[in-house]
């Protein structure tokens, strides 16, 4: 935790008497005294070690990485153009060659009977769609990958902007103190009273829905929590001796904030950000679902779900695919966020 300026002495390793290392016992020891015997781990190594023990979080991280890899990798190895329409292949159910399970064998219920729609539609035998096609003959798998990618991009941009604005605002507010701080806090209080929902709907009725306006609508009130957390943590740290020491040595406020305070609150910031990503995914899907989302031919999980919902009585596969992917992403992000929080702040875990 000590800043680098303190490593002035060039002592040989044998000048120190090595402490006996006991691997166990560091868990739950929040105080510095407890971990004296443990191997020296950086803050992040320590958090990572704790995160790795959380099975749910690790599994979620793995699934999310896989989803991200697939959806972003799909740009290069896409099974088909997500926007290519083919009216000969309209509304086909999913078909995976060699699989005979109902729902994935190209059969669908038409007028109470299960028939193979691929045979019915005179589709050549070498043509098949893993997740079927939609009403315009577009490959659902490609659309799903594109939609997932879009949802993730929007969420990550929104979370990153929340982070930037929130951290800057919180730290400035805490560092300035006095009247400036008071004013900035009142502004925050007013902003936080405005329901996110109302702002987002207003923004999107006024501006043309698109990535920019959706992100903008989400960050207007989204950064408030981050700013609050950052300010509270900064205020706490400003009282600490190492900050006073740095100030006494003549470091400027900006330098103290960036080199001493920011690294020490990075854990809290990461935790906060981990929670804002699923929120952003939810709101994007929500807005798309009520018809304020992306415009065609762009697709996100929300627009896919909303399109699938319209025909779900007859073509349920168009609804299930985005619903499942959206749910899995949300579950994984929430589990991961919980895990990250517990890892960075073991005191919070109960």
């Amino acid at each position: 935790m000590l800043p680098e300026e303190f490593e002035l002495l060039d002592l040989p390793p044998n000048a120190f008497e090595p402490l006996e290392i006991s691997g166990a016992g560091a868990d739950g020891g929040a105080g510095a005294g407890d971990s004296a015997g443990a191997p020296s781990l950086s803050f992040f190594q320590d958090a990572w070690r704790r995160l790795k023990k959380n099975k749910g979080a690790v599994l979620s991280l793995f699934i999310l990485a896989l989803i991200a890899l697939l959806s972003f990798g799909a740009v290069f190895i896409s099974p088909g153009d997500p926007n290519k329409q083919n009216l000969a292949y309209v509304n086909l159910p999913p078909k995976i060659p060699g699989v005979t399970i109902n729902g994935f064998n190209g059969a669908a219920i038409v007028a109470g009977e299960r028939v193979d729609k691929y045979v019915l539609g005179n589709i050549p035998p070498d043509v098949y769609f893993y997740l079927g096609t939609d009403g315009l003959g577009r490959d659902m798998l490609s659309r799903l990958l594109m939609g997932t990618r879009m949802s993730l991009i929007i969420a990550i941009i929104a979370a990153a902007l929340d982070l930037g604005i929130g951290v800057a605002y919180g730290m400035v507010s805490a560092a300035a103190g006095g009247r400036v701080d008071g004013f900035m806090q009142r502004a925050l209080e007013i902003l936080s009273g405005i329901p996110t929902l109302a702002v987002m709907i207003l923004m999107l009725t006024i501006f043309e829905p698109g990535i920019v306006s959706i992100v903008l609508a989400m960050i207007i009130t989204g950064w408030v929590n981050m700013a609050r957390v950052v300010r509270a943590q900064t205020l706490k740290l400003q009282e600490r001796e190492f900050v006073l020491a740095a100030a006494a040595l003549g470091a400027s406020k900006a330098k103290i904030a960036l080199t001493h305070i920011l690294p020490n609150i990075s854990g809290v910031i990461i935790v906060q950000m981990m929670f804002s990503i699923p929120t952003a995914i939810f709101f994007e899907a929500f807005l798309s679902f009520i018809g304020l989302g992306l415009k065609v031919p762009m697709a996100s999980l929300g627009t896919l779900l909303s399109d699938g919902y319209k025909t779900f009585r007859f073509l349920p596969h168009l609804m299930w695919a985005p619903a499942i992917v959206l749910s899995v992403i949300m579950i994984c992000f929430n589990l991961l966020a919980d895990g990250v929080r517990d890892a960075f702040d073991p005191k919070m875990k109960k």
Binding site: A285, L305, P316, M319, A323, L326, S327, M330, N334, L335
Partner: peptide, 18 residues
């Protein structure tokens, strides 16, 4: 609890309705 917290309510609505 995790499912209830994570799955968006419109997804629930659509699935329950179906």
């Amino acid at each position: 609890a995790i499912l209830g917290r994570s799955i968006p309510n419109f997804v629930f609505a659509v699935i329950l309705q179906y």
